[in-house]
Design a protein around this nucleic acid. Structure first.
Lengths: 344, 344
DNA sequence: CTGAAAGCGCTAACAA
DNA sequence: TTGTTAGCGCTTTCAG
């Protein structure tokens, strides 16, 4: 039934008519680009207010070539994987970027699917890609389209992309391994992930270099992020019951670090006395484990803030930086690696 | 220097020229709206591919009147307040909405500032407002603009807005109070928040009704969400050292619930024996407190999923629902209210 | 200080 | 099966 109000929205033309001026005057009254007499301005504004006028953003963008929006893409693994651990990482990063953008009053747009041409094009002036893979296809696509790009964490295959924020894994992971060593670890094993991104690559490299410098053989095992907790537990059990079992494990994801703690408990291994455990990302899994697990916090908030700042600078026409912005991961030492009283 | 490739992007016109067809053929080839001969299609597509053509989203939206984007507004308190507790809530909600939208391949856009006319207009087909205030101004503005609106939690002053998802506080809070009562609480005090939203309003109402039914005087104190932990502690200390101190407190925010636990400890009150504590929202504060604090989880993920679904239904032309979608908060019983062994 | 008019890139009649 | 063309609502010359 009945007479719903017409949905056709009011345009600059309606305002012009009502204020008895030309459309260009209306436009200028709002943009302030050229001087308008006091009286005219007032007429325009009140006409606009009475009519409930709002500029059509698409028309404006079409004309100016800019939308005032920044896109955000998080590589799929997060959105797909649904463990609590991954969600926390995803939420923290998305939340931080959103908060930061809100603070600066710039619209943020989650790009749904750059690969699907049907929904591929969103009106964005630039795009932030977080945690790209090596030779990332989204990065390639954006470069091809000439969309101003900032990456949060570098694409490991494109270390020379200067518009990037990166984490200094070398310092942090070295610090962690030194700590384990200092606490008496003799046989450290790294359980690395299978995702081909900076996080896995750089932490592996740092571990390898550290072992080399300390005259140890770099023992590494793959523990894919796609594993279920159960399968992970099986693999960990095998590792911990093997002949020369490690006395310290560094696990990429914190949910699997918690799995290690659980398996250790089952096997009667005391943490940290018999086995030390550390994670390369922090989450509630590591904080709530018994004992709480030492972890490297990836400083998502700082990554987000730096990424947003870089993007806005880029859009404002800043000069190309010489090198990526560096953010430090933060080591959170907890009971799982504290053998010596009073140590960090 | 010099000679950077022209940034002017390739348009439908360029593709038409290269493929030796008209622009409408190009348009139709992509939209599939009308049949195109196999040969022509191929020519168009390869021309497009060679040129690197992508449709201009603003031009399309201007023409069609739809952008394919959904807006999201979270009322300011979250973005402004920066305690860990609030950030967790914000992140969880934003993250859940984003995940849900990504899953459905619809673009999501964080609306920066609806009040600021300079940046007010973003191209959205509809808008989700989460946790509106009573008589919320953003809701008013959106209604005025005729933007299809879905609220996550109802605007308490507009309980009749049917496009909404709401939490059933009555059941959950009654359950919580019954639980406290069953565990032997005699003097329950509600520490409510000052934000005027459904959460505070409904939980207060439910508490009042429950007390009435149980022949108790409804004791309520205001503990503003804007307080620092220190000021909150001062007020809580006053409450707990007063003449007839409560033997159970229900605190709105979980960070202040943790503050209560801290103060209780200082005063030598045992939890839960001397004092039971519960929170009306869950977060790491409640989970990590000693002892862990019973809390009502606000089911943000479900709220988000339901809100997104409702919005997409609305945009797809679904009939106006008769009533809001109802989501249940989930009670998480923990040691802070567990006096009797074997109880939930 | 103000107006007229071109045109951003696209879709959808309308024609053929 | 394909082409021509009129706008969508705005900004921005170019004239006055």
């Amino acid at each position: 039934m009945g007479g719903r109000t017409s949905k056709r929205s009011v345009t600059i033309r309606d305002v012009a008519e009502r204020a008895q001026v030309s459309i260009s005057t209306v436009s200028h009254a709002f943009s302030g680009v050229r001087p308008i007499s006091r009286a005219t301005r007032d007429r325009v504004f009140s006409a606009a207010a009475e009519l409930g006028y709002d500029a059509n953003p698409s028309a404006r963008s079409l004309r100016t070539g800019r939308s005032g929006l920044v896109g955000l893409v998080l590589r799929p693994r997060y959105a797909v994987a649904h463990t609590r651990d991954r969600a926390e990482t995803f939420n923290r990063l998305v939340g931080s970027v959103a908060t930061e953008m809100l603070r600066r009053k710039v619209g943020l747009i989650h790009v749904p699917a750059l690969d699907d041409p049907a929904v591929a094009s969103v009106p964005m002036d630039g795009c932030i890609v977080a945690h790209p893979y090596g030779g990332d296809s989204v990065v390639s696509e954006l470069l091809r389209r000439n969309v101003p790009l900032v990456t949060i964490e570098e694409d490991p295959e494109r270390p020379d992309l200067p518009w990037a924020v990166r984490l200094d894994y070398t310092t942090a992971v070295t610090g962690l391994l030194d700590h384990l060593h200092h606490q008496g670890a003799g046989r450290i094993v790294l359980l690395t992930g299978s995702e081909d991104n900076a996080w896995n690559r750089r932490t592996r490299e740092t571990h390898r270099d550290w072992c080399e410098r300390n005259g140890q053989r770099a023992r590494t095992e793959l523990l894919s992020e796609s594993l279920s907790a159960g399968s992970a537990a099986t693999r960990v059990r095998r590792l911990l019951t093997a002949a020369r079992r490690p006395d310290a494990v560094v696990v990429a994801t914190s949910d699997f670090a918690a799995v290690v703690a659980g398996v250790a408990g089952d096997l009667g291994l005391r943490v940290p006395e018999d086995l030390m455990i550390a994670a390369l990302t922090d989450s509630e899994h590591s904080r709530l484990a018994t004992p709480p697990i030492t972890a490297m916090d990836l400083s998502h908030e700082q990554l987000a803030a730096a990424g947003v700042e870089l993007m806005l600078a880029r859009l404002a026409g800043a000069a190309t930086p010489h090198a990526p912005v560096v953010v430090d991961p933060e080591l959170r030492f907890r009971a799982s690696t504290r053998r010596i009283d009073g140590s960090p």
